[in-house]
Design a protein around this nucleic acid. Sequence first.
DNA 1: CATCAGGGCCCTG
DNA 2: CAGGGCCCTGAT
Length: 325
Amino acid sequence: MKLTHRKIVELCPRAPFNFDATMRKPDHFPSSDNAWQPGIRWQTMRWNSEQLGLKFENTGTVGEPNIRLSIWSKNKLDSSFIDALTVEVTYRYNLQLDLTEFNRRFRSDLKFAPILRKWRGMRPLSYSSLYEYLMIAIVLQNCTVRRSVNMLQALFEHYGMSLAYDDKVLYTFWLPEEIDQSTEDELRALKVGYRAKSIKRVTAAFVNGQIDELALRTQSRDEQRAALLRLYGIGPQSVSYILTDQFHRWDEFEHVSPWEQKIYSKLFFDKNPERPVSVAKLLRFFNRRFAGYRALAVHYIWEDLFWKRTHRSAKIDWLEKLIRL
DNA sequence: CATCAGGGCCCTG
DNA sequence: CAGGGCCCTGAT
């Protein structure tokens, strides 16, 4: 589908705002609903029954941030739609996050302060709706990066829609209603394996109104956690990502998966990943050092590591061994 | 060729 | 609460 109408709005994130470190997350697996180059992110969005092509352009600096957001659509959009969309984007992309206290708190942390300075103004975020993030979480489970990429791409091609705008062709996600009628066998044909059941059941929960993203946003962290864990196929690992990225819980850090355990052991204790530090010890360490901002601090450390990996010619050997592509 | 574990989660005992 | 099974894929 070709998107022909274009509207432009200006967004003013709260300073400090690091555009590229926010709009590009090298630890995410590549997916065809978005594209990035320095200073620009393209992102499709399925929202309020419109298929949208977004383009974020950096027109400011870390200290004086400004974004030009172009919104492509098939139908002409009225100003109330644009206003509501701006509110939603501001929430999802965390544009008003106040990092003052966080930055002050770790200014004198010898090991962490340099990373903080380097990525000053970066924030975790979700580019997606909760439903879409859950789909991403499901295709991440128990497989290699390449397989996650293939599964999501197959789902896009089967249930999503490709949008042409600004010389890009990118896919949007489907709505829960659009995949709800398909059978588990149809999904399995896309090689998602046993995840078909999770996709079906999470989708059904949205169609039946058992879960509502906007309502959840106003609830407590424990209520959010419980609601997510109630979904079939969604466990502690997926929930920890979602609580941080989607619901902005900056101190959410209750779970360390085996591969993360190896990476933290190497980073903070310089331990051979073959003989990692125990999860209990890691949790105690993060508790003491980053209390109040555990998820946010870990995000900075994690992104720093993956930026080095992706945007630097010299590979980090021990890390390469832990990432199966 | 066969075997195995992976950026989890569910279910069972 | 530990451990087996699950789909498929690439590595060995």
